[in-house]
Amino acid sequence: MTVEDHSPSRRTFLKESLLGVAVLSAAKVHPRLLLSDGVPAEVATQLHYFSGHEYMIVRAIAGCMVGRVPAETEDPIDAALRADQFLSTADEEVQDQIHQLLTAFNGPFFTFLFDFRFSSFLRMKPQDQDSYLEDWMTSTLAFRRKGFQALKRLTLSMYYTDRRSWATIGYHGMTPEVRP
């Protein structure tokens, strides 16, 4: 950020390094490195933008980002499903970029390339998923930090704009005594 000269480039997501270009290209060649979906049927029928596989990736990312709730409690907020609704009306360019980012983030080829891990993000153990996200957040590669920011913004904004999250953080909306 300080002294980098981000020369204006059209493809705005990952194309900021030679590696980024390679990742983008590979992600385009292999748009779906699919595993079995495991998407609940009631969710699958509601998806407009994500494939079932992508939904599962984003759901796992959201779980990491928000912080997993204890196993005995069920979080009513499905940030991934909200993200699907949000992205279904986004610009085509943004939609295209998110598809590519998810492919680059999850695919075993890329997890190996970036971190010498032999598993896709979805197949990692929870603690390894956290560690993998941490690697993206603190990477020396600018496009990975950028990818992390995109995923953080997408998932946390979908979670905390849902007012059901308010009770857990002690937020009550506008100053209560003046609420119309």
Partner: peptide, 16 residues
């Protein structure tokens, strides 16, 4: 809340 959540450092359990 959303502004705060996006601005807070890190992610996961410590963020929560």
């Amino acid at each position: 809340p959303t502004l705060a959540a996006l601005a807070l450092p890190g992610f996961g359990a410590s963020h929560r």
